[in-house]
Computed example of a mutant assay.
Amino acid sequence: MASAVRAGHRLRRAAEGGELAALPAGLQAELEAALASQGALVPFSLLRRLHTALREAGYPLYLHELLEGCEIDLPEVPVPPRNPELVARLERIKAKLANEEYRRMTRNVTGQMNGTLAEFGRQVRSVKAVVITIFNFIVTVVTAFACTYLGSQYVFAETAARVLSAVIVASVVGLAELYVMVQTLEGDLGKL
């Protein structure tokens, strides 16, 4: 905390030029000693007494005029040396926090890569299941048609009747297979 001012040109001129001759001798001597000291530091207590003396004497010179050009002397605050144990502990904490921050930032990156590959694998399995189901549907319908066409030769002599009966049976088998396939896909899509 500031407790003194560094004397400016106006205060020096007033003290040396005799403008403050009406001041008590002790106060004037104290002011001259302060001005002659190293750095010309004038304490606030001396300035208060100077202000009071100027007011009582009815002096035409005001304190703010005397302090023109003065600077407040702010003493340097001594910085205590840091405890090496505390410094080491702070460094460990900073390193730990930086490591946690790094892990937090990279967790999503690593998770996305694994998640993307896992999602890709899941989609491949789903597509594989759909392809197998469609292939099974086609094979079942074609087989039902072929079996009915070949088996109906013992019942029908005409080709048109054989084809018509094979199409009807293949359609019924196809609709039944389609119903089962939709139920299966709906169940698989519900799990995704």
Rank of each mutant, 00 (worst) to 15 (best):
R82M: 03
A40E: 03
Q28D: 02
P75I: 07
A33Y: 01
V131E: 15
R89G: 04
L86P: 03
S37N: 14
A25L: 12
A22Y: 09
R125K: 14
T140R: 04
A95C: 03
G151M: 09
R48M: 05
E68G: 07
G121T: 07
L86G: 10
G39H: 09
A36H: 00
A144Y: 06
N114P: 04
N99E: 15
H51E: 10
P43W: 05
G18E: 12
L54I: 03
G17A: 02
S37Y: 01
A129D: 14
Y149E: 00
P75G: 03
L66Q: 10
R103N: 13
S126E: 11
C147N: 12
L97C: 04
A25F: 11
Q123T: 08
E158D: 11
L67N: 01
C147E: 10
A98R: 14
C70K: 00
E76I: 13
R48T: 09
E119R: 13
I93G: 00
T148M: 14
A14G: 05
V131S: 06
M105P: 11
I93T: 00
V124S: 03
V130A: 06
S126P: 13
S37D: 02
K128L: 02
L67E: 06
T140V: 12
S45N: 01
L66R: 04
V77C: 14
S126W: 11
Q153G: 08
R49T: 02
Q123F: 10
V131F: 14
M113W: 07
R49P: 01
A146C: 02
T106W: 15
Y149R: 00
G115M: 11
K96T: 05
L117D: 04
T159W: 13
A98K: 15
V142Q: 02
L117M: 04
G18C: 09
P43R: 01
R49S: 03
L47S: 00
N99T: 14
R125C: 11
Y149L: 04
M105I: 13
P80I: 08
T106N: 12
C147M: 09
A88R: 02
V141E: 01
G17P: 03
L41Y: 12
R103G: 11
E65M: 14
R104A: 05
G39Q: 10
A157V: 12
E68I: 08
L63W: 08
N99A: 13
R48D: 07
N114E: 12
V109L: 15
F44R: 07
V109M: 15
V124W: 02
E119G: 12
F145K: 02
H51N: 05
